[in-house]
Design a protein around this nucleic acid. Structure first.
Lengths: 164, 164
DNA sequence: TATTGTTATACTCTATAACTATA
DNA sequence: TATAGTTATAGAGTATAACAATA
């Protein structure tokens, strides 16, 4: 054929190899949030891969640490995790000896959560890493930009939803 | 027992019912990106729920629209979708008559993608909605804030990774 | 040998609904 | 009758590795 290293069909100029044009997608919040989250996970595992701890799990421990005796449902709501899923997550942490479940006398349907001593130590030792200003948290951003980014994300959610 | 409506154990003041303290988590990028993305999905389905279209699918069609003849692998890389997953997505869109797969003579391993006429119409008709300044895209933010948010997310990813 | 895409498989996260025990 | 949590089940999204066809 006569088109081996000449142009492909006119309609398909640069088919495949050229840089991909994203247009408005590059400033679309939906797309950018997804991409940024993928990047964040990548960095998380570069940083904490050896720990056998998933991003969401530290959040869980952190909130129990700050709110000892929090009820399982309250935790689920604060973190936007479905109660059915929370049951599994807490069960696992309990088996690992990190979290204690306690059924209070004044409402025996509910479950109150606290960290065990090893659990507390675990959180306190890693707190600086997880909330620190390192690669994972965006070394490409200044401290002010990081804060601004978090605040814009909060504002995107809206106050009604945020404090509901 | 003598503690029915008195205080629970001292350590568990306000167990369960008080407002949950999030501490540094509230300005943690990992947590906030997850929360904001959940909110975005919620809004997406409020807005486009009737369409039987998932958030990622419009992105796919949009990029094919802007890059007719793009190769399947190039699309997968640009959108950070794994090739194995892309196969399934494209297959579905092909069955719906929205996308055409074409195997070029100059490299018969590859697959070039274009939109069908109905596909083009579909994208062009919805483009304003998907990229518009409405509820879904964050009515809580000004136009400038929305742009700034997208740019900070881009910057978080870092230029090396972004254009790799 | 390397590359492009496909198939098969599995694992995580999430969603839903039915269930229990308590209130 | 309502609420807190549990169980069971299913679906979406993604990851991996083995594979076929082509380069």
């Amino acid at each position: 054929m006569s088109r081996a290293d000449t142009l492909p069909a006119a309609a398909n100029a640069d088919a495949g190899t050229a840089r991909v044009e994203l247009g408005e997608l590059g400033t679309s919040l939906g797309f950018m949030m997804r991409i940024a989250q993928l990047r964040l996970f990548e960095r998380f595992f570069e940083r904490f891969g050896g720990l056998d701890l998933k991003p969401g799990e530290f959040s869980l421990l952190w909130v129990i640490h700050l709110n000892p005796g929090i009820r399982q449902g309250g935790l689920a709501h604060a973190l936007r995790i479905k109660p059915a899923h929370m049951t599994k997550l807490i069960r696992k942490l309990e088996e690992q000896g990190i979290v204690t479940r306690h059924i209070p006398d004044d409402d025996r349907r509910s479950v109150e959560l606290t960290l065990t001593e090893p659990g507390k130590r675990f959180v306190e030792e890693r707190q600086a890493d997880f909330f620190g200003a390192d690669d994972y948290h965006g070394n490409a951003l200044t401290r002010a930009e990081r804060l601004q980014l978090a605040e814009l994300l909060q504002k995107y959610c809206g106050p009604d939803w945020w404090h509901e």
